[in-house]
């Protein structure tokens, strides 16, 4: 199988889950395990570009496929992928444990729906649990990521603006993407 563009042999143990293989054999610990029964989405990776739960797959099932993990989105410390950037700008993460799974789901979602409606956003992230954010900031991040991914389209989103300046302590309920002053 290929993982983030590099070929790797399959694990010797045929019972090895893909999630455990990535984390413990390949050291790609960005893929997290929150439940190991397919509900939380923390372990989401891309298999040939589509999001899958790596805790519900055996590693050997990934033979012959392309696996992309969170580490593969912006390799080697290069500029953050637009989805990662959007999560940063919109405070889409707190503890960060669910985050790799969300980011991978959103990459998949936006590949399918580059301009998602509100319902498509909710549906697209409704396979991932987050216990910290209450999802509001993640929704904003998805909308923002759609904007960042379409640089040629004029920015139609209220989230694309400059954000608040340092002196602005107005209490708008966090509509704007945060910004470094």
């Amino acid at each position: 199988m290929k993982v983030n563009g590099f070929a790797h042999p399959a694990p010797s143990d045929p019972r090895r889950l893909l999630s455990d293989h990535l984390r413990h054999d390949l050291g790609l610990t960005g893929t997290h395990v929150g439940c190991e029964h397919g509900v939380c989405g923390c372990c989401t990776v891309l298999l040939d570009g589509a999001p899958v739960r790596s805790c519900l797959m055996l590693a050997v099932q990934a033979e012959g496929h392309d696996v992309t993990t969170i580490e593969g989105l912006a390799p080697g410390g290069s500029q953050l992928h637009p989805v990662q950037q959007a999560f940063h700008e919109c405070h889409g993460l707190q503890c960060g444990f669910c985050t790799p799974g969300f980011v991978m789901s959103v990459v998949g979602l936006l590949a399918q729906h580059p301009h998602p409606t509100e319902e498509q956003v909710d549906e697209g992230i409704a396979g991932n649990l987050c216990r910290c954010t209450g999802y509001a900031s993640i929704r904003r991040a998805v909308t923002r990521a759609a904007v960042l991914l379409a640089p040629l389209t004029p920015d139609p989103s209220p989230l694309g603006g400059e954000g608040a300046n340092p002196a602005d302590r107005s209490s708008s309920g966090g509509e704007g993407a945060g910004t470094s002053p």
Binding site: L28, T29, G30, T31, H32, T69, I70, E71, L73, A74, G77, L80, Q84, F87, H88, E89, H91, L93, G96, F97, T99, P100, V103, G163, A164, N165, P166, A167, D168, R169, G176, G178, T179, S180, P181
Partner: peptide
């Protein structure tokens, strides 16, 4: 500059977003 009160973006994000958190 007064940073207190500003919407400063998080210092911890980059690592966590790249899958380089250390749990």
């Amino acid at each position: 500059t007064r940073w207190f009160g500003a919407r400063v973006q998080r210092a911890e994000d980059d690592r966590l977003l790249r899958g380089r958190g250390r749990f």
